[in-house]
Amino acid sequence: MGLKPLDLKKIQEIAGNTYEAIVIMAKRARQVNDERKIMFNKRLDEVRALKAQQQQGKEEEPVRILDDEKTPKAPPEQLQIAEEFDLMPKPADVAIEEYLSGKLEWSYSRDKDEERRRR
C-alpha cells in the first residue's frame, strides 16, 4: 500500500483548522479500532466455543501444535481470522476517508467547570 498525499486545505475547510481535524479523525480511528477489536474477540470466542464442544466428545487431552522450536503455535482457525482482519483497511485510513467524504458528524461538549466560570 502506497502513501497518498492529503489536501490540507480541504481538511481545514471541513473542520476549521488542522489540529481540530486531526483530533476528529483520531477519535474516529479509535472507534473503528475498538469496534474491530470487539468483532475479533467475538469471532475468537466462537471458535473457542466450537473447539470446546468438539473436545467434550473426546476425553483425550487436546493435541498441541508445536513449531520447530517446540513452542505452542496458534490454531489454524485463529490464524485465518487474524489474516482476515489484517486485510481490512487500517482504522486511520477509514477515518480519513469518512472525514473527507463528509460522513463524520461531531459536536462539542462544554466542560462543566467552564460553564460554571461563564455564569
Rank of each mutant, 00 (worst) to 15 (best):
K27F: 02
A29Y: 03
D86M: 13
S109P: 07
K58A: 13
R117C: 08
Q53T: 06
F40K: 03
Y108E: 10
F85S: 03
E20D: 09
E97N: 08
F85P: 05
K10Y: 02
E98W: 02
S109C: 09
S109V: 12
G57K: 14
E35K: 14
K103R: 04
F85G: 03
E98Y: 00
K42M: 13
L79R: 11
S109N: 14
E77R: 05
Y99T: 00
V47H: 11
I24A: 01
E20P: 03
T71I: 11
L66N: 05
G57E: 12
N17S: 05
K37F: 06
L3K: 15
E20W: 08
Q78M: 12
R117P: 06
E77D: 05
P89L: 04
E61V: 08
P76K: 14
L50C: 07
L66Y: 15
K37M: 07
K27Q: 07
D93K: 10
A82F: 12
E60A: 12
E114D: 10
P76F: 11
I96D: 01
R116H: 06
R117K: 15
L6V: 03
E60D: 10
R43F: 08
E115W: 14
P72T: 04
K90R: 08
L79T: 09
R119Y: 14
E46Q: 13
Q55S: 11
R118W: 07
E97R: 06
E35Y: 10
K51W: 12
Q55A: 13
V23G: 03
A74G: 06
P72C: 04
Q78N: 13
Q78D: 11
M88K: 10
K4S: 10
D45K: 15
E115M: 15
A95Q: 00
V63H: 10
M25W: 01
